[in-house]
Write a protein that binds this DNA or RNA. Structure first.
Lengths: 347, 347
DNA sequence: TTCTTCGCTGCAAACCTTTGCAGCTCTCCG
DNA sequence: CGGAGAGCTGCAAAGGTTTGCAGCGAAGAA
């Protein structure tokens, strides 16, 4: 039913190769012929079959994007930015959701490998060695994680965590809890490392609680634990957990920031809408999405893996860029001075 | 570099067709041969090239999902459900975001048409005739809209809006505003129609404000207009707008629900997290995603469009199912009794 | 022994497009 | 007038897979 290149060729009285060239190399065909072909193509509603093209060029013009949880508001802006950038370059994005599951992650990247020109691994939970392994199968750019020898786009959450801790120290807090995120998260390790150092430097005590599921539920679940720990401030792995925690604390009769201060990470849109508005570390998610797409496409044009390109680019070790994006602390209403010592925090 | 069917055939000493059958019709090949082939395939890390398969079968095993705005929390649960259901059937989902733009919508469906077996059009903004047109190019299931002759999955927001208005009437409200959504939205028309009828029946006055951008910003922007209109309750096109409106009213010194009641639509996760918690119409988004995928795949197996299937299924008008999913009103804290008449609402 | 039947495997066409190469026609120059 | 070159077009192979058809050997029946 859909018109093929052959139909257009027949209709315009030329060979199929001429039709092909009309689209892929217009300067090689007589202007007169070109307009005729284009007219016929338009008429028949012809659009090149990308699958067939992919077969011979080795380029699908698709890229895969694997995220841990599309329902986590952290990801959509990144996805959106990546899609926009990709579309700009005539690429399409295949989004897949792993439900925070390592096994699903691996399965998905394999399933995607053959139908995309490259994969963006966003906040992967799998092991470094597994990532390296899949990168031999399909070009990969890693987001939110550092893997040696692979192109990576990271956000400097370590720096952000340090700023957050310093902010809390400045408010007088000396007993601080860190709400850990999911196991396997690079971001989680970075935050923990930086927060630990900053707390030690400032003479504060840092209690690590976790790992936890990086959602409101996960945050709410540890509210009681936080109360019993007797801390006066909390740095959460992400905004969702911070918000869940605030809810949970509220249910326990603890007020934020009067009784306890809470800082999140990500600066999702939601963090401006809750009451109190959340103090958080803003991460440049959109920029990360755009950058990652650029790096992948760059990689791709450097190292053709098409049918024709074999053998040409054997031994060149391309320089694998690693980009670190800056973060910043956004102070809103969920942090305040440490409560007077006499006050009962319910502990 | 990646192993092809030919490599496996060579390694296991059989013809490529036997390898092919080992995967697509195992019962046709000798068990002994089968294990040998499977071993070789495993060994070489062979995975069938889906593009090549698509070329001959006419099935890509991909489906497209076009949404208006992936950053709107309404969509992710739907996407997630659709993806899960699709993966279950060995399909992958191509998500694309139109940024609420009709032109982008049309362009995207065309670009996707050839590399997917069907498209899920979620809350499309384009005209019915355009939808019908693209449906001739690629199988389509429409979500959140009714188009005659096309399979549709709808949520009964009309019913939900009626319940919402009745809830407000029950609280004594007689002057109610409706915050309209984007132009071209079927949901918007449904809500408006049903709310209008319910208000008239209950002897209330319904003021329609809009159209508006369906985001917090869009909701916040009309806060002043709402105040000046002198209504005591508002039904918003979606939760995001409702939340934005509450923010905006708050900035104007109006309290929800003491001064004014607000109801949303969608029951996004966020609506449980804001203060006050939002009264809203819950829509079964996940069910809609699953149902739509099922309908598309069903459609697809009924009407093969593969290379081999031509001519066989010419004239059969398949029954195009239209499914209406129920909604329900979730009463939380953003609605309350109408304020005493003497009270100054700032108008 | 001869004929069927059955189970398995190989053959080759087909899907749609891209692209290196060769051939054609024309123009222009010497 | 002959030859070179440029501009355009056609030819055919290639890419990886599926599938209808045919062929082959062995087992069973007559």
């Amino acid at each position: 039913m859909p018109a093929t290149i052959r139909d257009v060729a027949r209709a315009s009285g030329v060979h199929i190769s001429t039709v092909s060239r009309t689209f892929s190399a217009p300067h090689l065909v007589n202007p007169e012929t070109r307009v005729r072909v284009l007219a016929c193509a338009e008429d028949l509603g012809y659009r090149p079959n990308r699958a067939a093209r992919a077969l011979i060029t080795g380029r699908t013009h698709n890229i895969g994007l694997i995220v841990a949880d599309i329902a986590n508001p952290f990801f959509p802006p990144l996805i959106k930015a990546a899609e926009g950038q990709a579309r700009h370059r005539d690429y399409h994005v295949f989004v897949a959701d792993t439900n925070e599951d390592q096994a699903a992650e691996e399965e998905l990247v394999h399933a995607l490998a053959k139908q995309v020109d490259g994969v963006l691994l966003c906040s992967p939970r799998m092991s470094n060695s597994l990532i390296e392994q899949v990168s031999r199968e399909v070009p990969v750019v890693v987001i939110n994680r550092q893997v040696a020898g692979l192109p990576c786009v990271m956000m400097d959450v370590g720096q952000g965590a340090r700023l957050a801790i310093e902010h809390l120290l400045g408010l007088g807090h000396r007993r601080i809890a860190l709400l850990g995120g999911p196991r396997g998260s690079w971001t989680n390790r970075e935050i923990r490392r930086a927060a630990g150092t900053a707390a030690r430097t400032g003479g504060a005590e840092l209690t690590v609680l976790g790992p936890n599921h990086p959602t409101e539920t996960g945050g709410g679940a540890v509210a009681d634990q936080v109360r019993r720990s007797g801390v006066t401030a909390v740095l959460a792995y992400n905004d969702l957990m911070a918000i869940g925690l605030i809810e949970g604390l509220d249910a326990l009769g603890l007020r934020v920031p009067a009784d306890i201060s809470v800082v999140g990470v990500d600066d999702i849109a939601l963090s401006r809408l809750t009451r109190p508005k959340l103090t958080t570390v803003a991460t440049p998610t959109a920029a990360a999405g755009r950058t990652a797409v650029d790096m992948l496409l760059q990689l791709d044009s450097d190292a053709p893996r098409g049918a024709r390109g074999r053998g040409a680019t054997a031994g060149d070790r391309r320089t694998t860029a690693q980009v670190m994006l800056q973060t910043e602390l956004v102070v809103r209403d969920s942090t305040g001075p440490v409560p007077p010592p006499g006050r009962d925090t319910g502990a």
